[in-house]
Every structure is written in C-alpha cells, then in structure tokens.
Design a protein around this nucleic acid. Structure first.
Lengths: 200, 200
DNA sequence: ACCTGAACACCGTTCAAGT
DNA sequence: ACCTGAACACCGTTCAAGT
C-alpha cells in the first residue's frame, strides 16, 4: 500500500484490477450496470486504457466468465474434499456450494452460461469443463462404491447438474425463497439417489 | 394492410406494436441489443413516443416478461391438454413444451426470471403464477391417480420445475447439445417418476 | 509496451411544444 | 390524449499522439 498504488495500475496489473473491480460491480449491480468507462474511472485510468487488455466490452465479460468458472471449480472441489469421504456427504456439500455460488454471484453465473456457446474451443470452455469435472468425479465415486448404477458419468451427472442449476434459478428468480431452499435441495438429492440407486 | 398502417401506430396500438417488435428483437438479438430509440424507429415513431406507454426501458422489459409468462402458460396448457388423458404422456408433453419455449425464447425467459423478484405483487407475479399452475395441476393429477406420492403439489412440483428449467439452462448455455437433450429429458422424467412413486 | 484524450456515433431520459 | 424534437448526460469504440 502507499505511494506505489497510484502508479501501480499503470505498470502491469491493470488487467487484474479491471477484472477485480468488474467482478465486484457485476455482483453488486448486475451486468447491465457494468460500464467500461466507469470501470476505468474507478481504477484511476483513462477510458481508452482498458483497450490494451480487452478488445471490447464483450472480451472483458468473457474474461470475467472464465475467471468465474475457475473459481466455481475451486469452490466445488473444496466443498467436496472438505466434506470427508462419504459419498452422500460430499454430494450434499458440493450441491450446497454450487447453490452458494449461484446466489452470491447470480449475475456472474448468468454471464458464464451466456458466454459458453460463443467459441466451441478456447479458454472459457476449458475452464468450464474443469469446473464440471468435479461433479463427474463425484458421480464416479458414487458408481465405484455401488451407490449409483454404473454407466457414463455424464449421463447421470448432467441430470444432477441440471437439477441443482434449476434450483438455483428458481431461487435467484424469486420463485422460491430461502426458506423453501433447504427442503427442495434435500428432496432433490433424495430423489436423485432413489432414482439412480442400483436395484436390489 | 395498406393506407391505414402509417397512421395506425399513432392511434391506439403503439404499445402493442412496440411490444411485438421488442419481442422479435429480443428473440433474434438478445436483450442487450434492445434499444428504445431503434424500436421507435422501426415502428415509425419519434424516439420520445414510447414514453407514453413505458416509463423507461425497464418498464418495457417488465411488460415483455409479463407477456412471456402469459404465452408460456398457454403453451404449457395446450401441450398438456393436447397430449390426451394419460398422466405420463401429459408430463412428457408439458416438459417438452417448456424446453421448446426456453430454447426458442431463451433471452425472454431470462428476462422473465430476472424481473420476477422486483415487486412482490403486481401483474408480473400473477402471470407467472398462472403459468406455473399448469405444472402444479399436473402434479395433482398424478397424485390423484396414485402415480405420485401424496403431499403438497408444490413440494414435488418445484422439483420437477427446477429439473426442467435446469435442463433448458444446460441446453441454451451450450453445455449439452440437441443430441443429448432427448436422452437427458427422458432420464429426468424417469428419475422423477421413480423417485416420487408411491412405495409398493 | 502502455496509456491519454479528442472524436464519432449511439443511447436513455426529460420536457416544452405541437396536434 | 398522444406524439414530436431539442437538450442533456452518458456510453463503446477508434485512433493519433504522447511517455
């Protein structure tokens, strides 16, 4: 801190500073409110400066989405690993972590989903795949220990993913409230386990 | 058609014309591309004219969302009733209708979810409730004939809703493609029925 | 290599004035 | 009651010029 901060923005970390401030603005006010010019102002730089690091507004949004996927992946993995060894515990913890991300960063998640089908390859897709892989590995664990029926992890993994994402959408859309969330999430996981369990 | 069209916009149906054009623009180019001024231009009216019918851009978006819910409700109901009397047929048809709406009007659906938690009462909420009621009535039918376990229709209805909405999100987000959709949707419904079936 | 600042074409919103 | 058109403050993007 101190004397260097004023000059620091002009020397190497402008890109990082812009992304950090953008993420804050998106979280607090939504994507609509995000203005490149205001971002530049907040970060203490002229309005033309961001151009060196982001070709246009969309490029900044894409970078934001990519960083979002990276963070989501970390948060999901930490939740899974922090929940111990039991499959169902891990499942519940990971689902809860996804919901937490989706509610804290609802606008960012929207951005992440929106940006994905732009370029079929690229860093954004890679970051997304890495985040989703946490779910698929979890499914593999459940299959390995015989709790879930065997098969491609994607098949049942996408169903789990869809359900959790849908619950998050209902919550951020104001269709259900926080009070109904826990019940719905518990029901969803119970249904999922019942529906995917190996027949006895 | 003909001579009256030029003047007609200035005499009573400007609101309707703006909404219709806005819906088209949102479908074809997304909400971001929607400009009040361009809308006014396309409809042949000065840029200040929309103000009489929509206080600001957000008011237009809210009206768009409300109309979207009304149409979604109609499409879901038509799908359910057009599928005959069998519960599972109706369930499949209604889910497919939701996915169809969500893919054809992805940006509009986003708008519908975004606008909902603004004012807790109002016409938007009412239109939304009416659309959702189709799902809940369907659940009641399933419970009535003993296919689904009894209970509040909302409890299992929200789960069904979330799953379908989540699948739509994965599809419009480019995380799954059309080829994977049918399989995933069939799996989801099968899971749902297995998980909610009355124990024998 | 990175940033500045003028320039351009657009936008939402407001409001007096017209019909 | 409804629409027009000037005005204002903002925006994204471009690009010559500075360091």
């Amino acid at each position: 801190m101190g004397v260097t901060t004023q000059r620091a923005y002009h020397h190497g970390n402008l890109r990082t500073a812009l992304l950090a401030q953008a993420e804050r603005t998106v979280r607090e006010s939504g994507v609509q409110e995000l203005s490149l010019r205001e971002l530049a102002r907040e970060v203490g730089v002229s309005h033309g400066a961001p151009r060196r690091h982001f070709a246009d507004r969309q490029a900044l949004l894409d970078a934001l989405a990519e960083a979002g996927f990276a963070r989501l992946g970390v948060e999901l993995r930490e939740a899974a690993e922090g929940a111990g060894k039991d499959f169902q515990d891990r499942l519940r913890a990971t689902a809860a972590a996804y919901i937490r991300f989706a509610t804290r960063d609802a606008a960012l998640l929207e951005l992440m989903f929106a940006g994905k089908h732009r370029e079929p390859d690229g860093a954004l897709h890679e970051a997304a795949e890495r985040a989703f892989s946490v779910l698929f590995e979890l499914i593999e664990q459940g299959q390995g220990e015989g709790t879930l029926e065997p098969g491609e992890p994607e098949r049942v993994g996408f169903l789990l993913f869809a359900t959790i994402q849908g619950i998050a959408a209902l919550l951020t859309g104001g269709i259900i409230d926080d009070g109904q969330l826990d019940e719905l999430l518990a029901d969803a996981i119970a249904h999922f386990l019942r529906g995917s369990r190996v027949a006895v």
